[in-house]
Amino acid sequence: MEVHLDLDQNRYSGIPLRQEPVDFCAMSSVFRDYSTHAFEASEDVLLFPRFQWVSLRARAYRWRSIKSIAKDAEKCTKKMAKMPATPHEDIAILIAIYNRLKTFRIFPLSCIPDSLACLFFLVNEGCKANFVIGVRENPFMAHAWLEINGAVANDVVANVFHYTPILETANEDYLRQVSG
């Protein structure tokens, strides 16, 4: 589906396109390999206050428009542009820590606030990530996730494959649309 995002009207529309079948095994994410990263209590305890802060910050986005979410994601993108590249192993360990700490969250977050919380968490730790919102039809649904160097970071590739991205912080055209 070719999708067009209208940030001013807080809506999107799409034109169906035919997709080719994909081999999910070939697309497996490097970050899933670290989901079994050994529990390091001291490491997790040190990052827990930052985790709670970004979770509370992201929770406030439940009532905000796509445009305001996009503007804040753009600010993160500008901040990330100044950061040096972080090794995949370090990012994967941080994502594993984030996923472990989610079990201690006192309130649930849907995919957009959770992906924003993970983005804020990674940015606070000096990592770059691409925040993505995608949509699909039949049944119509929207979903958000993070990508790092093209690999899905905080979700499973099979969960996000059927969604067409309508908002990406790493896309220059998107940044012009938000700024304009």
Score class of each variant (00 low, 15 high):
residue 129 A to W: 00
residue 95 I to H: 01
residue 124 N to Y: 10
residue 36 T to L: 08
residue 84 P to D: 09
residue 143 H to V: 08
residue 55 S to Y: 10
residue 61 Y to E: 12
residue 80 M to E: 12
residue 47 L to A: 15
residue 166 I to F: 04
residue 172 E to H: 09
residue 30 V to F: 05
residue 5 L to M: 04
residue 137 E to D: 12
residue 26 A to R: 14
residue 94 L to Y: 08
residue 134 G to V: 06
residue 84 P to G: 08
residue 24 F to S: 14
residue 68 S to V: 15
residue 144 A to I: 05
residue 38 A to S: 15
residue 20 E to Q: 13
residue 111 C to P: 00
residue 179 S to T: 15
residue 161 F to K: 08
residue 58 A to E: 02
residue 76 C to D: 06
residue 89 E to Q: 13
residue 160 V to S: 01
residue 91 I to K: 03
residue 180 G to V: 11
residue 30 V to A: 06
residue 149 N to D: 12
residue 104 F to T: 04
residue 107 F to C: 06
residue 63 W to K: 09
residue 20 E to L: 11
residue 145 W to G: 02
residue 115 S to C: 04
residue 33 D to A: 11
residue 39 F to I: 13
residue 40 E to N: 09
residue 154 N to S: 02
residue 18 R to A: 12
residue 83 M to W: 08
residue 107 F to Y: 07
residue 12 Y to T: 04
residue 4 H to K: 09
residue 70 A to R: 00
residue 109 L to E: 05
residue 136 R to W: 13
residue 123 V to D: 03
residue 83 M to D: 14
residue 103 T to Y: 12
residue 87 P to G: 13
residue 162 H to N: 07
residue 15 I to K: 03
residue 9 Q to T: 04
residue 17 L to M: 11
residue 145 W to S: 01
residue 35 S to Q: 11
residue 180 G to P: 05
residue 48 F to H: 09
residue 128 K to L: 12
residue 155 D to M: 01
residue 165 P to Y: 07
residue 172 E to A: 13
residue 54 V to L: 05
residue 149 N to C: 08
residue 62 R to P: 07
residue 99 N to G: 06
residue 12 Y to L: 07
residue 7 L to M: 11
residue 153 A to Y: 01
residue 163 Y to E: 03
residue 43 E to N: 07
residue 27 M to I: 08
residue 151 A to Q: 13
residue 132 V to G: 00
residue 174 Y to G: 07
residue 102 K to M: 12
residue 62 R to N: 15
residue 156 V to M: 11
residue 41 A to D: 14
residue 136 R to Y: 15
residue 7 L to I: 07
residue 53 W to Y: 10
residue 73 A to P: 01
residue 92 A to E: 00
residue 109 L to P: 01
residue 25 C to M: 11
residue 114 D to E: 12
residue 159 N to I: 15
residue 168 E to P: 03
residue 29 S to F: 14
residue 36 T to W: 09
residue 48 F to M: 04
residue 37 H to P: 03
residue 117 A to H: 07
residue 151 A to C: 13
residue 43 E to K: 07
residue 125 E to Q: 09
residue 164 T to G: 02
residue 180 G to R: 06
residue 128 K to F: 04
residue 170 A to V: 08
residue 168 E to F: 06
residue 137 E to C: 06
residue 97 I to M: 13
residue 141 M to H: 05
residue 105 R to P: 03
residue 134 G to M: 04
residue 117 A to C: 03
residue 14 G to D: 14
residue 82 K to V: 14
residue 143 H to T: 03
residue 107 F to H: 11
residue 8 D to K: 13
residue 93 I to E: 10
residue 82 K to H: 14
residue 18 R to C: 09
residue 66 I to W: 05
residue 129 A to V: 01
residue 71 K to Y: 05
residue 176 R to E: 10
residue 148 I to R: 07
residue 151 A to M: 13
residue 4 H to L: 14
residue 58 A to G: 00
residue 85 A to C: 09
residue 60 A to L: 14
residue 84 P to F: 06
residue 113 P to I: 04
residue 11 R to S: 12
residue 124 N to G: 10
residue 85 A to M: 11
residue 124 N to C: 12
